[in-house]
Simulated scan of single mutants.
Amino acid sequence: MSVVGKAETELLLSPAVVPVCALLPLLLTLSHACPKECTCNSNTKVVDCRGRGLYDIPRRLHPDTQELYLQDNRIRGLGSMAFRDIPLVRILDLSNNSITSISPTALLGLRTLQRLSLAHNSLRELDKRLLGPIRSLSHLDLSHNRHMNSFLFCFLPTSLWGLHGAMGESLRNLSHLGLAHNRLTRLDRSLLENLGHLDSLTLRGNPWRCDCQLIGLKLWLETYLFKGGVVDEVLCSQPAEMRDRDLQKIPYQLFHACMTTSYHYLFANIHHLESERLLRGHTHGNHVHPSSHTLHCEPKQKQRPVNLRHAIATVIITGVVCGIVCLMMLAAAVYGCAYAAIMAKYQRELKKNEELAAAQGADHATADEKEPLENAIA
């Protein structure tokens, strides 16, 4: 052994160094000790931080934590990768705080999350990337967010006013969805159709607008209940004649007026899809930096007038409808003329036959008169 190697060995085995090496595991354990604001159970891997007046997520949580309870605090926002220290958490309860904004990457890394509660907060909208990496979520509670009037992704216009279907992929395995006591007026049927495992749904306490655009929700609810799903109620707030009536019990006859305005609804959907496509293309070109700690939404744009493409589509569809009506009228006229010509010909033939029959009758009468006269002369 060289002199240098021997010196290093003696240094490592010296009494001053050995205790430090022995303390390394202890130091690593202490670095992930239970936060002083919380109560931890190492056996059940539960961290309870309820009602401690917290303004932020506690740091140095143990990485084996599976349940984290943070309700009844004063947390106002969730920054990027706020729970990176606990990637194995299955239950996360953030209810009854003051959360107004959530970073799109706040839940990044929580691939095993099963239950998430954001109830009783002040959320306005969510970004679709928030739940993107999570496929195991089975319970989502967003009830009692009085400012949430659209539950949209921040880059979509407020005119959509409903849950958007693009989030359906992240919620495919949901068994419970809580949306009660918000300010929702509509709900996108395309999102609900993706929730194939949904067992219970809460919708009460929202100012539902029971117009033609809510027929899709009514149809989905009937199928959902027929399959054994559980839903509380959808009480209409508007229009006035349907106020306080349950959408599930309103007969379809009351939506008869929707038939006369169906083409307006069609054009509205076309305009909505076109706007969404343009906005998606815009957002793909302007990605939010992952280091942002809050959800910065783009300013809401004013509704623009219908563009040239929509005007041309309207003219084309109107022309097609008018053309079909004209063809039907032309066919009716041709049919009427043909029928009149056939009837006239029939009448002429009938009259001709009657005159011929009368002439033949007269000839027979003349022949009968001449025959007795000839017999008498003979």
Rank of each mutant, 00 (worst) to 15 (best):
K351P: 00
T260Q: 14
S237M: 04
R309V: 06
V3M: 12
R76A: 15
S292F: 06
S138T: 11
H282K: 15
A313T: 11
E276H: 06
S262I: 09
V288A: 09
L192K: 02
G336D: 15
C154A: 09
R74D: 14
R124N: 04
S136A: 11
E125M: 11
I377H: 08
S291E: 03
G323F: 12
V320E: 10
V315L: 13
L54Q: 13
L184Q: 05
N145W: 00
S98Q: 12
A362Q: 15
Y339R: 14
R52C: 13
T158Y: 01
S117T: 08
E274D: 15
P305D: 04
G51E: 12
A332Y: 08
H310K: 08
I86D: 13
L130E: 12
H310I: 11
P19V: 06
L179M: 05
L12H: 08
L152N: 01
T185R: 09
T366W: 06
K302T: 02
P207V: 09
G281F: 08
G168L: 02
P239R: 01
Y69G: 05
D48A: 04
S143K: 01
R52Y: 04
A357I: 00
P299A: 08
G132F: 08
L107G: 03
L356R: 04
Q66G: 13
G178Q: 07
S190T: 00
S98D: 12
V325Y: 15
S143I: 07
L187T: 11
S2Q: 00
V315F: 14
P372E: 14
M329P: 00
M343E: 15
S14M: 01
N43R: 08
S117C: 00
P25H: 02
D56T: 11
G216L: 06
N73F: 14
G165D: 09
V334Q: 06
K300N: 02
E8G: 02
Q253H: 09
L130D: 07
